[in-house]
Design a binder for these strands. Structure first.
Lengths: 233, 233
DNA sequence: GGGTTGTCGATATCGGCGTTATGTTGTGAC
DNA sequence: GTCACAACATAACGCCGATATCGACAACCC
């Protein structure tokens, strides 16, 4: 995945350093090239564009993001992992505010896939929750809700860094969204038990699959389960 | 409040037009001056800075924002007004994506007060809800939650405009946050009836005040009510 | 009323930026 | 040996944000 081009990696790291230390969250292609010790045309040959460099920095930030996440999501309880994932997201925003905005704030003409990949990570974590019967919604819908709320909260905290000191607000938002997405441990099958069971089976099939059915049959079954869980609410 | 300086207003409007029609959500001071028919030094005399111009554009956007809001928040039911306010916020983001990002995305060194003023508007709407006994939290805390979630959802929709077509996601987020902030109509006084009653009285005093107590007494009472409602959760 | 002062504006310019055309050097193939 | 090609630096172009300098004009004091 990483092309192991040392020059390219050095430029990305230099750009990330300058981005983190710049007061206005901006970088200058000249300064990046000077820090690495090369001239400007190499930047345009490697990244095509300043925007290409920024996209590469954002994608590199995704790998640092996954490194933080991979170091913690070890619990057997997927719901606890989900909570830790929210807090890890906030910690990443606090540690790298400029990089965070680059990754999660909409930039026109951006071709970075950082946000989508974070989304996929979240969908995977939510699918594990669904397999445990803890999810009320489809994993993708729940992921969109959680990620939007997480980003909105993190951007608010970045604008007012004092908020990071007290995690009460972040946890309140986390609980608000999670309680709308997760099943309550007490009354597990609330309104529509068929729907919850279908969601659980769908996720379990995504995770482990089955050998009791032919692939074509499994595919048809998944479509049926999607129809059962579709209507929302 | 508006200084009624026609030149200043013309430059703000020109900058807003160019911001809305620019592909990269950027403006050039030269182009703004040229459209108005003045030279660059007047821009720096009026706004001091390019950032000053952008701040003025953001603050002007706040007035358009309030215009949309003032046209709808008329119902007697403050909770219904709150729901309409969320949807109006999303509609504003859809109608003016570039201006929206300028107003609600953290910009270093920005001196714009647009976000704070929107926050104050939301606090006022929530205080009306609290006076009706519909709020579980202090208005400021609730406002921070709602605004962060609203901004996060709107930014997500701006990045993928197709999401605007189906309001299901936005409404899901709205319900998630609101159900964490508002009292359910059925079981109004749930865990801590003293706290809910104190919140209600605090808000009502903020709104209408009282003549039964001296001002100093009222102030002390408000501090007591804050201590009752402080501990959170 | 003439000179003074200060405000408002334009012209011209500076330094920095993103980007690219041009030259130059090194290297492997035949 | 030379020829083709790739990789790199030099130098330049055009645009941008910001400002120094200068001119016009109204108000005001003596």
């Amino acid at each position: 995945m990483t092309e192991t081009d040392p020059l390219r990696a050095a430029m990305i790291e230099a750009a990330e350093r300058q981005l983190a230390s710049s007061s206005d969250h901006e970088i200058a292609t000249r300064a990046v090239c000077e820090e690495v010790g090369v001239s400007q045309p190499v930047l345009y040959r490697l990244f095509g564009d300043k925007r290409g460099l920024l996209d590469a920095v954002a994608d590199h930030g995704y790998e640092r993001y996954t490194a933080i996440k991979a170091a913690q999501e070890q619990t057997g309880d997927p719901v606890a992992d989900l909570h830790a994932g929210w807090d890890g997201h906030m910690a990443f925003a606090q540690a790298n505010p400029a990089l965070y905005q680059l990754m999660f704030t909409p930039r026109p003409w951006s071709r970075s896939t950082a946000r989508e990949r974070v989304m996929d990570l979240l969908v995977a974590a939510l699918t594990r929750c669904a397999a445990a019967g803890a999810l009320k919604l489809e994993p993708r819908t729940a992921a969109q809700l959680i990620l939007s709320a997480n980003i909105g909260t993190a951007l608010d905290h970045i604008a007012k860094p004092a908020l990071f000191e007290d995690p009460a607000l972040s946890h309140r938002m986390r609980d608000a969204v999670f309680s709308h997405v997760l099943t309550t441990p007490t009354a597990q099958d609330d309104a529509d038990p068929v729907r919850t069971a279908a969601l659980r089976l769908h996720a379990q099939l995504d995770l482990t699959g089955t050998e009791a059915l032919e692939p074509a049959e499994t595919a048809l079954l998944q479509r049926w389960l999607e129809r059962i869980t579709r209507p929302g609410r």
